[in-house]
Amino acid sequence: MSYIFTVSPDFSPDHISGWYIFNTWLQKHTDLAIHLEMYNNFHSQRSAIQNDSIDLIYANPYDAAILVRDKGFRPLTKPRGCCDEVIVATSINSPVQDIANLQPGIKVATTEDPDVNMIGMIMLESADLNAANIELKTSDSYVLVAKHLLRDDSDVGFFLAEAFDDLSTLIKNQLRILVRSQISVIHHSLMLGPKLADQHDLISRLLLDMDADEKNREVLSSLGFTGWDKVEDEEMEFMIDLMDTLKV
């Protein structure tokens, strides 16, 4: 029997090969046939989740509620020290110096990344901005979000903080950070579906021990991680509750 593993489509393009290396590592250490299926966007990945096609997922926190509460997934691990924080930025040439200066009707450059968009919108709320009085311009990548700002065809952009920090210095020097979130408790997680439930303890142990071995650390490095930290069921429930409060 073959199992399907997928990765949240907002992963950094630099790490695509890393996920294939990780999947090979996982198969070797679990003796399970696991196929890595990369979806181009959140819409197609959610369809696969709804159709019960996914058995293992590196999930965006926005999808955690569906996975845990509707589909019976359990959390395994999260990348060490990585939280999903968001930056709202503008062009260095923009007169806007503060979120409070933003006015209704602004154009907001963004990606499809659902938790980034949610947190970004929350940070605009204090300026009385909401989905009804702004214009969203959705791009395929954070580099394109930055380009929208540099070309002056968007007023602000939403970035995953990690992606912003990975932009070239040349681009970053032409952008101004208006606000960087400091939430600390929202993160992507590796989660296991019901068909693999009996493998939970084995896979969890393998992942948590990964950073103890030099070769395994290279696999982690290809993902941009230094190690995995355990995610308890209640910690995941807490994050889902938190996301629910933020979706209001």
């Binding site: 429930e237 509750d241 209001v248």
Partner: peptide
């Protein structure tokens, strides 16, 4: 603050509440 409070429901039972506060708009 702008506050949101939700019940924490586990196995159909309310075990507590989570409250999240964010920056409110000056107009509000």
């Amino acid at each position: 603050v702008k506050a949101t409070v939700i019940p924490n429901i586990r196995n159909g039972i309310t075990v507590g509440y989570t409250s999240v506060r964010r920056k409110p708009s000056k107009a509000k």
